[in-house]
Design a protein around this nucleic acid. Structure first.
Lengths: 413, 413
DNA sequence: CTTATTTTTTTCGGAACCCGAAATAAATAG
DNA sequence: CTATTTATTTCGGGTTCCGAAAAAAATAAG
């Protein structure tokens, strides 16, 4: 709103446009890009030949064998895999994994380890990340483009600038400056973001038709996380990563939450809450530290099999989620939902209760139109999301600007 | 994200930049504009002399008598009042008011009438608006610039495109197409927006320091409304005007709300809810249709005077608002708050309860830092907001593009 | 096999835009 | 009255985009 547009910004933006069109579409031709961006053919032509000569894009080899059409065949453009690479790191409770991805989005090497995150120092956590990234980037396989960006997806709350892990259930330590430390170590920009936000980012790339401009990803796991895309933008807080759906209040002064407060949605719908309600029947019992996925699946099987405390526990969970969604929908209208994580395998049990709770709220007007989708496996989504985050910033911040000063290149030519 | 920037868009945007800088600052000089926009002096010079010759801006007459500074004195630029005018219409329960405002933002003529909105047909409501606008625009006083835009602020839910009143407590009718009908009548673009959103817009102009990029306006009146500005943008739903704070759920299956559902915040904190709790002690009693401001002030006086059902009613109201805010702050971090309307006069009674409720939520981390402000009189705010909305669209959509095709003008010159 | 047709991509000339530097304008200080 | 300071305008230059025309690369038709 306040800063004017310089003449040279224009070129940068339109380069970004072209790169993003190539990343989004599968091998578009120059003509297609001209159509989707609204820019003229001549502009697309110059920009794309610049990008090709800079080694960012490439013309696809004979891919589609026969076009069956008259006229000069379109030349498909692709991202040049060797243009760069990025590292995606996923840090979760007791687990660290990372991968090197080339510029076209293909995984080059990856690695996963188990750690006991809750009993490690902040330093040790950082060191583990550093060590893993170093192993991966120095491996023979990762000999493509230079690593230009590292993106981490972490459980917990990060700051809005994506520099620090402010708070996380996976460690007792606060304010861990992952970005600063990794940047020091590798000399490459690093971002640290909330894992659910990365899940949302990934969904958008997996199914751009369903998950386009407005949708919600909810992670049903030990806690309840959320990634929210509104009007095409990932919705984050002004100071923190935001969208802590699990800590909206379901019942004032209600069940004891892992965060120490009372009545949070998570205190009814988190894995520990469901287990507690089913097995102890005491919603004020101290939350269990860890719970295996099998425990939850066992509860779900019991709930499906017969009426009893398990079924009741899932009812309460569904109700909490439904009322929470209803309250959210009072603020910004319903959107398609994806339930991700172990909890999603039990979503069939909760769904009727979710829907009936939503129906009691302002969002209820459209409750039948709201569509749910489930995806039990959250780990690949987190990695894909972090990957896309990293690649997009390379696109926008590095390659859109032009790697080398363009004037110098013109002299060479 | 998808559309490229054309070469001619650039000028349009930068013209918009300059106009907006003049509207925001009080009489900035060209040099100041260059500084705030980041554009070069020469660009600002050409753009502003274009705008002056088009009659959109003007150089201020000897305003500041002595500058006390060495060097050529700055020439202050102002908006040319006669460049255009707009009409702001405020439709509330039993009241309609409208005003003609010149391009510089000065009110030229205004009028207010009482109507019995709840017993009028949709047609009659539209007709009243048409008649009032016609009277105002045809009055002798309104002989300045042509009316280029009409903006309405209405209680209730409007559609995201600002065309229709989807639902409103002031009338039993749904889907009233104000924008279409007024456009037909006056041949000028019309927008219809939620009144609380306009209050937020107005606050931002009244106090741009406090209400800058993130803040919340809450209207405490018969119902509870909200206008939300997040990251510099008015936050609206994807289909409707959104941000229906009053209908977030405070207590599942709780008190009976005017909307027919149960447990909404409004059912505890709306005027009717406070009155009901204080006087009937039955939170399921049918909500009263109307309640005068004096009734509320009387309840507030009683609550201040002695412990009793009135004080308890305000406690419940404050608690509902506090938990609601806490849930919102789980989603997007706390921001400065303004409480507007009659209810704001009683906010002193509610404040401790609001704060103690927030302290029990995820937003509680910063609860002491959250600052409240009150403004009892909402009517002028609604009008100011609608005015600014209208003027800004004239700035951005009409004058930024250039009134006449620039090529033709160049020929003349 | 050659020519016409169709479609894609590149090239070229022209216009619009912004920038930086220099020039001009308008005030105060000495 | 001149030097200094600050604001604004003018001018030349370089980018950038666009539209039209040309070139390229295929198929269809004779």
């Amino acid at each position: 709103m306040s800063v004017g547009i310089r003449h040279d910004d224009l070129r940068r933006r339109n380069r970004a446009m072209v790169i993003s069109a190539v990343r989004r579409a599968s091998q578009p031709s120059r003509t297609e890009i001209a159509a989707t961006t609204g820019l003229s053919h001549s502009t697309i032509s110059t920009i794309s030949s610049d990008l090709i000569s800079e080694g960012i894009l490439a013309e696809a080899k004979s891919n589609e064998p026969v076009s069956m059409k008259r006229g000069r065949p379109q030349v498909a453009l692709t991202l040049e895999p060797k243009a760069a690479s990025v590292v995606a790191v996923v840090l979760s409770l007791n687990s660290l994994s990372a991968a090197v991805i080339d510029y076209a989005g293909n995984t080059v090497v990856e690695e996963t380890t188990r750690l006991v995150t809750q009993h490690m120092s902040a330093e040790a956590l950082i060191d583990e990340c550093v060590a893993m990234i170093r192993r991966l980037t120095q491996s023979d396989a990762a000999s493509g483009g230079a690593v230009l960006r590292i993106a981490m997806a972490v459980q917990g709350i990060t700051d809005a600038a994506s520099r620090k892990l402010l708070w996380s259930p996976i460690t007792p330590h606060d304010d861990i400056p992952f970005a600063d430390r990794l940047e020091q170590e590798f000399g490459v920009p690093v971002s640290v973001e909330n894992d659910c936000n990365m899940i949302a980012e990934a969904l958008r790339w997996r199914d751009p038709v369903r998950y386009r401009d407005d949708f919600i990803a909810i992670l049903l796991s030990h806690g309840i996380g959320m990634g929210l895309v509104i009007k095409g933008e990932l919705f984050t807080g002004t100071q923190s990563s935001g969208a802590e759906f699990g800590h909206m209040i379901h019942r004032p002064d209600g069940a004891l939450c892992r965060c120490g407060r009372r009545g949070c949605i998570e205190a009814y719908a988190g894995n520990y809450a469901i287990w507690r309600n089913a097995r102890l029947g005491d919603e004020n019992a101290e939350p269990l530290a860890d719970l295996s996925d099998d425990d939850i699946r066992a509860l779900a099987d019991a709930a499906r099999d017969h009426d009893g405390p398990e079924r009741e526990a899932f009812r309460k969970a569904g109700e909490a989620i439904g009322f929470g969604l209803g309250s959210m929908f009072a603020l910004f209208d319903p959107a398609p939902l994806a339930f991700v994580g172990v909890g999603a395998t039990a979503f069939d049990i909760m769904e009727p209760h979710v829907r009936s709770a939503i129906a009691k709220t302002a969002g209820g007007l459209h409750s039948k139109a709201i569509s749910f989708d489930t995806e039990p496996n959250e780990v690949p989504l987190k990695r894909e999301g972090a990957t896309m985050r990293a690649l997009l910033t390379v696109d926008q911040e590095i390659f859109a600007a032009g790697t080398a000063p363009r004037r110098a290149e013109a002299d060479v030519a």
